[in-house]
Simulated scan of single mutants.
Amino acid sequence: MSQQEEYISKLSLYLFWDIDITKADMDTCPAQIIQRVLEYGQWEDWQLIRSYYGLDKIVSICKSLRTLDPKALAYICCISNTSKEEYRCYHESLRNPTIWNTE
């Protein structure tokens, strides 16, 4: 079992309800994995992706995400000492306000 397969097998299975987890690749689609763990994962899932990718890569990927849950954005900003204005998802949410998001 490769290191990547070992990490994937330890992630919560419910995070990947729509894909075949045996075909998932942490290096091919890191944005999808990081976003799902931040928005829906458990603490153990976060620890796994942080040890695999490292905080700098996670922050870099999060900065390019079009959408990210506001709580996940606040968390990543807090632990990386970055401002929410540096993230694409923050500006996208301001451009496309909804009835629930009037910031």
Score class of each variant (00 low, 15 high):
Q35D: 04
M1Y: 08
K84T: 08
W17I: 10
I49R: 02
S80E: 03
T28S: 13
K71D: 04
L65I: 12
I76H: 00
C29D: 05
I33Q: 09
Q32K: 13
N81Y: 10
Y75I: 07
C77Y: 01
K57T: 02
E5G: 00
I61Y: 00
I19T: 10
I19H: 00
E39I: 14
M26Q: 03
S51Q: 09
F16M: 08
A24K: 02
C77N: 01
I99V: 15
T28E: 14
E85A: 03
L48T: 09
A24G: 01
L13D: 10
E103N: 06
K57E: 01
S9N: 14
E92P: 02
S93P: 00
D25H: 06
I76M: 04
L13K: 10
P97I: 08
W43Y: 11
R88L: 15
I21S: 07
Y87P: 07
Q42R: 15
S93M: 14
S12D: 12
D45A: 04
A24F: 02
S2W: 04
R36G: 14
T28H: 13
K84Y: 13
D27Q: 10
C29Y: 13
Y90I: 04
D69H: 15
E39H: 03
I76K: 00
A74E: 14
V37F: 03
L11M: 07
E86M: 12
Q42V: 07
A74N: 12
D27F: 01
V59P: 01
V37D: 02
M1G: 03
E86S: 13
D56P: 05
Y87G: 01
S51E: 11
K63Y: 02
K10C: 09
D56Q: 15
D25A: 02
Y7C: 10
L68F: 10
Y7H: 05
L55N: 02
E92G: 02
E5K: 08
K10Y: 06
T22E: 14
L65N: 14
L15K: 00
L11I: 10
C29L: 08
D20V: 03
N101V: 08
Y87F: 15
G41K: 10
E39M: 03
E6N: 07
S2G: 03
N81F: 11
S80K: 03
R36T: 12
Y87N: 08
T67Q: 15
S60I: 00
E6G: 07
P70D: 09
S12I: 10
Y40L: 14
